[in-house]
Design a protein around this nucleic acid. Structure first.
Length: 503
RNA sequence: GGCGGUAUCGUCUAGGGGUUAGGACACGUGGUUCUCAACCACGGAACCGGGGUUCGAAUCCCCGUACCGCUACCA
């Protein structure tokens, strides 16, 4: 089995295309087949090498590695259509020689007028075939004289064309709706329908898996395969990905490209897993499955026929699963850009990384959807301003409780006599001392402690947050982590702020 | 306009001539926790409409409707 993903390098990798790539990949990996990457850059106007690079990176990021492609090569290269122009020309010439294709000299204006007329008459707009009448020798002479011409395929005289789609079954149309398609444009570049057929045939692609926007192209392509004397591959057309308003997923819906989801802090395995579930189901049971398992279970026959709505909420839920099970060291490294943007880190060294992985990240991985939310969850480590905190209504509600200020004063004095609270147990011991001296317990005890030490009424659990603060405070200044004030200093500062405020 | 495709909870889907139409996300309620988040439990929520076939249709067939795609010298 040989499958391919054939993007045109005209922009970023869209999640819809990423899903097409994924389904190809799943099929290849699940059956020991070959996954090929081919760049369809025959549109000179719109193709950009930066886009090609970006698409390759996005695919790599998703873990969709290819066996043959423009960068890795392979027996069927080149894998960039712009490098295969000679092939399209020679096959076009062969078809002309065989009388299956001809030169067309019609101007775009002429064609446009014809189209309008057809539509007005309520017919399928298609090329009239006028230039079929030009004698080959005469056409040749005009072309040699430099007249602009395209090469058109002569649609054979038959009733219908059809093919069997693996996901949808028989799909056929009357041949009348198909006008002679352009094979070679006047600039010598192949038109899409011609280039795909030549490439898929020459690259010995066995299964063409692509978006359903290509269904109507398929009929023309089947005709071309027949003219070339090649058995067509099997086809499978995937439904499209839409936004919540049932229109094609676009910028209006927010993030649409793989790069944007990566930037928001989604893990590649989460995107892969979510996309696999959009339009396909592994069957009853668990939905969170690693790529290898998805590949093992995947089958085209089980792919849904109807369009899927991209649901970022569900992507987020999948992401949470992977965030929780990922190694903290990996998450720490991935979080650095977000922490840096928030001013919480510069370039952490080994000590800084160790602090993040063992102290900070455990507070974010099971309470956040994406990594770009990490700073929000960790801000209390780096930002501590008692005078600002006591203005907050939630904090004020805690401070107003009887005994709250007493608890904070007591905490401050206790911490002055204690070592740094580097573990859960030392923190618990400190809390126990305050409990003994004030008689407060439960909320009445822990709420004031939380407020005094983190400056917030909410946040990660204190058993994690407090040791993280003191571990951070012990970090050397050149560890690449923004300065963190220790618990002892915080308690004293908070108590002082309360006195200034007259409480 | 023409041609093609599609239709199960708000969303992703399982199922498929006789089922209490199942699961997941989201939502609501409750629980746990020092708090928020997370987590756990429970709950509400669907077979597009009309005909036909059949003892019986959400399931098969036809028509309609809606939505999507194509209708290029874009891919």
């Amino acid at each position: 089995m040989r499958v391919r993903f054939a993007p045109s390098p005209t922009g970023h990798l869209h999640v819809g295309n990423a899903r097409t790539a994924l389904f190809n990949w799943l099929l290849a990996r699940g059956s020991g087949g070959t996954f090929i990457l081919r760049i369809e850059d025959t549109d000179v106007e719109r193709s950009r090498t930066e886009s090609e690079q970006a698409i390759l990176e996005d695919l790599e990021w998703m873990g969709l590695h290819w066996d043959e492609g423009p960068d890795v090569g392979g027996r069927f290269g080149p894998y960039r259509q712009s490098e295969r122009l000679y092939l399209y020309r020679s096959y076009a010439e062969r078809l002309i020689r065989e009388g299956r294709a001809y030169y067309c000299f019609c101007s775009p204006q002429q064609l446009e007028a014809e189209r309008k007329e057809q539509v007005r008459l309520g017919r399928a707009p298609r090329y009239s075939g006028r230039c079929r009448a030009i004698a080959p020798a005469g056409a040749r002479a005009r072309v040699d004289a430099g007249e602009a011409a395209v090469v058109r395929f002569k649609v054979p005289d038959q009733e219908r064309v059809g093919f069997t789609d693996i996901v949808r079954g028989e799909i056929s149309v009357s041949i009348d709706v198909i006008g002679d398609p352009v094979l070679l444009r006047s600039d010598g570049h192949p038109a899409y329908n011609f280039a795909v057929v030549i490439d898929d045939a020459l690259m010995e692609i066995t299964h063409v898996i692509r978006g359903e926007d290509h269904i109507s192209n398929t009929h023309r392509q089947v005709l071309l395969y027949e003219a070339l004397g090649v058995t067509p591959p099997k086809f499978a057309h995937l439904s499209l990905v839409l936004g919540p308003d049932h229109t094609p997923l676009s910028k209006r819906h927010g993030a649409t490209s793989v790069a944007e989801f990566r930037a928001k802090g989604y893990l590649p395995e989460a995107l892969v897993n979510y996309l696999a579930l959009l339009g396909w189901s592994p069957g009853e049971g668990e939905e969170v499955l690693p790529a290898a398992e998805l590949a093992r279970r995947f089958s085209l026959e089980a792919v849904a026929h109807s369009a899927g709505i991209f649901d970022e909420e569900k992507l987020a839920w999948v992401n949470r699963h992977y965030l929780r099970s990922a190694a903290p060291e990996r998450i720490a490294a991935l979080s650095i850009p977000y922490l840096r943007a928030a001013g919480f880190a510069t370039a952490p060294d080994a000590r800084g990384l160790e602090f993040l992985a063992s102290r900070a990240i455990p507070m974010v991985t099971n309470s956040v959807d994406r990594l770009d939310q990490a700073p929000r969850r960790l801000h209390f480590l780096f930002e501590f301003k008692p005078s600002v905190s006591i203005q907050d209504s939630d904090v004020a509600a805690i401070l107003i409780h009887p005994g709250a200020t007493h608890a904070i004063d007591t905490l401050a004095s206790e911490l002055e006599m204690m070592p740094r609270l580097l573990t859960r147990d030392t923190f618990r011991a400190a809390a126990a001392r305050v409990r003994e001296r004030t008689g407060l317990k439960g909320k009445d005890l822990f709420h004031p402690i939380r407020v005094a030490l983190t400056g917030d009424a909410g946040g990660p659990e204190l058993d994690l947050a407090i040791p993280a603060i003191d571990a951070g405070a012990a970090l050397p200044a050149d560890a690449g982590i923004a300065p963190i004030m220790g618990c002892r200093e915080r308690a004293v500062a908070f108590a002082a702020a309360l006195r200034v405020d007259g409480r």
